[in-house]
Amino acid sequence: MTNDYTKAISKDSDANAPAVPRRSRLRESWQLLKQNRLAVVGLVIFVLFFCTAFIGLVLTTGTNPIFDPAMVRLQEKLRPPLSRPNLEALRPEEVPGAGVYLLGTDDLGRDLFARMLQGAWVSLTVGFVAVGISVLVGILVGGIAGYFGQNHTSIDTLIMRFVDIMLCFPSFFLILTVVALLPASMYNIMIVIGLTSWMGSARFVRAEFLSLREQDFVTAARALGVNDWRIIFRHMIPNAIAPVLVSATIGIATAILTEAGLSFLGFGVPPPHATWGNILSDGRRFIFDAPWLTFAPGFAILIVVLSFNLFGEGLRDILNPKLRERY
């Protein structure tokens, strides 16, 4: 009885003690993420894709790579997946790294597996650099509009009008126009995709800044004499980054799809770089003779984009406390 009583007391005192969150923010997020099975699957594929891309970069570059994506073997063209190379017809340095053509060969006898590995890295870079550019521009533009708009309404109006103007362009058409007019290069594509997709994150950041700039910690920082840029980057952006992160994750998926679409129209990353997009668009000519040339990159893009989308949506649910109950 007394035992129960003391227990009750101690429970009571626990309740009166200052409320310290028992779990850290990160652990809480992880707990929430674990409930969303699709998002966890997304995250796992996301990580696997990263590892594949890095390993692929290591295995396919250098002077004498283990998997050579550019090795042409005309006598071995359009071999189906898992077929053994014809050792008599090949010089020793032409034999594929794994001893078999894991995913078959294409119309020039290049090892599809090696090309897919190289393409993973290129797709990853295109996605990340493009989204990196768009997020940077978005944060900067949105931050300036949201922060300085308080005292200078004209800055805010001017920037948001410019965002409206940019939103009037049909995005894929604009990207296509610019990519077609510029000389073909991988970097141009990344920059163009980045510079035509920052409007969303700019709007998110501005909206967050409008409410953040009225809060006490910003006033306190200003009272301490912290300069504007430090307030923006050190105090406000960390608090406004959540929706941007979500849209960036989904943006990477969109960028990979956009690159594939451009490749399909012949404006993608130029050869000799293999990307999943240009393997797919080259492979469609052999869709009946060599379906693996279409299906391997097609499903690879599908799975990676799907994982980015699922993880992004999961992230949105975690970071948005209003949606928590609902899912």
Binding site: L38, A260, F264, L280, I301, L302, L306, N309
Partner: peptide, 22 residues
Amino acid sequence: TTFLSYLLISIPGFFFAYMLII
């Protein structure tokens, strides 16, 4: 349907088109 709609958003349009055509 949730999963299916994610699938439809993620599939490259022309890849899907070729599968449907076949």
